[in-house]
Design a protein around this nucleic acid. Structure first.
Lengths: 230, 230
DNA sequence: ATTATTTTATGATTTGCGTCAGTTTTTTAT
DNA sequence: ATAAAAAACTGACGCAAATCATAAAATAAT
């Protein structure tokens, strides 16, 4: 798989919602049965293995979805606002969350009752088809991340994450990281020390500039090459 | 994620089909537009990036789905008969296969036209919902495999694959492997030499018995412990 | 402001595992 | 049956990256 960083790492599905496909009646049903919950940075939104009572729609903020260790958690996606989480727990015979979700920043989440969501899925095939598309888009991205983490070595994995943060999350070459080096190490499946060392190499090689939480990618083609060759 | 080998490695969705949810008319539509193709061992069923003209239903045989390198392919699933492949290419805006499929053994595949499949998805929400469930089941398994490959070291990854082959594919503690050590190395993301070395260790420790292509797992609890601790 | 605590940074050491090189066994082809 | 090719195996060596140990800087708490 030719992976040039961008599409390989984090979830970024439809910035538009799927809700415009609902009938007025269905919209009202969701409105009347859902509620918005506010989470502070670092808080747990849902817990892997617990009862999947709700589908979560991120109205504001930044989250991660992850499988819990031991020995370590595996981060599946970074998910910004206007995305649905928990869809993968919908399948018949499973009413548990497949992954945990926690917040990188303060986040507002609309909690939609799973039964209501399922009911609408069954009765509205346009909506159901759209959700299927969203799931497949998410899966395609998960595959890209999967490939990056299993087939590339450290520098390539870090390049992937940096490119992805830049393009998909912050949409700028220069951005303020809301996450720590340790978070980056979780994202890239390496030790914190390795992240710091590789970042230093990138800095020495004039590929990025860093100042604490601020990161600027100054040589994108070079970073892409590192991403490609692994 | 507490991963005890079985559910972590290969695809094994519904041994029953989803086709019983179709109307007679829809069944006839599929029958009249689909055809069965026979592949020999090692042949290519579909190619990542090519036009996704068909959904594939494995009637007989054993396949792998994989993302193509460089530097190496990443195997996503081992898929036995009575499973659908290519569903992930269904999403709107993408008409390319997300992964390649090739055969481990002689295989018969029913090729169902993507447009026909999509049409039925849109008009039959029970069917669409079932497909969504299948996709989610597949995703859950992919996550398990993802976790195994990124968080465990060699012995744990090999233990996972052996347990999974035993339980999900062959349904016996003793079985004839239709794949080579090199295939096992692709499945576990390690070198062929490492597979052979670890297999030797397992053999020396009386955990498995091997005789060429024949493998017998004799100490399942021990193998599970190796899988768990990574 | 000052202390405490977390995060970032750097060097030394260890290790899991890949690469390479070579041998034996098994399978395939003639 | 015999030769050729592929797969299975074994050991020596090297390297990417984890771990361990410490120190400096940044952030949070008092």
């Amino acid at each position: 798989m030719p992976t040039t960083g961008t599409e390989t790492c984090v979830s970024f599905v439809y910035e538009v919602s799927c809700f415009e496909l609902l009938t007025e009646q269905e919209k009202e049903l969701i409105d009347s049965t859902s509620l918005i919950v506010n989470y502070k940075k670092g808080e747990n939104v849902c817990k892997q293995g617990s009862f999947a009572s709700h589908i979560m729609y991120i109205e504001k903020g930044l989250c991660k979805t992850y499988l819990e260790g031991p020995p370590k958690d595996l981060i599946l996606t970074i998910t910004p606002r206007f995305n649905l989480l928990g869809l993968q727990s919908l399948y018949e015979g499973n009413n548990k969350f497949l992954y945990s979700v926690s917040t990188y920043t303060d986040t507002a989440v609309r909690m939609i009752d799973t039964q209501v969501f399922k009911q609408i899925l069954r009765q509205n095939s346009a909506f159901s088809y759209r959700i299927l598309n969203i799931l497949n888009e998410t899966t395609a991205q998960a595959y890209g991340r999967f490939f990056s983490l299993t087939q590339k070595q450290g520098a390539g994995r870090l390049a992937d994450i940096l490119l992805c943060l830049s393009r998909r999350i912050f949409k700028a070459d220069s951005f303020e990281l809301p996450i720590s080096r340790s978070d980056l190490s979780d994202l890239t499946c390496m030790s914190t020390e390795s992240v710091i060392r590789i970042m230093k190499d990138f800095k020495d090689d004039q590929i990025i500039e860093t100042n604490n939480k601020h990161i600027a990618i100054i040589d994108i083609p070079r970073l892409e090459r590192i991403s490609e060759k692994g």
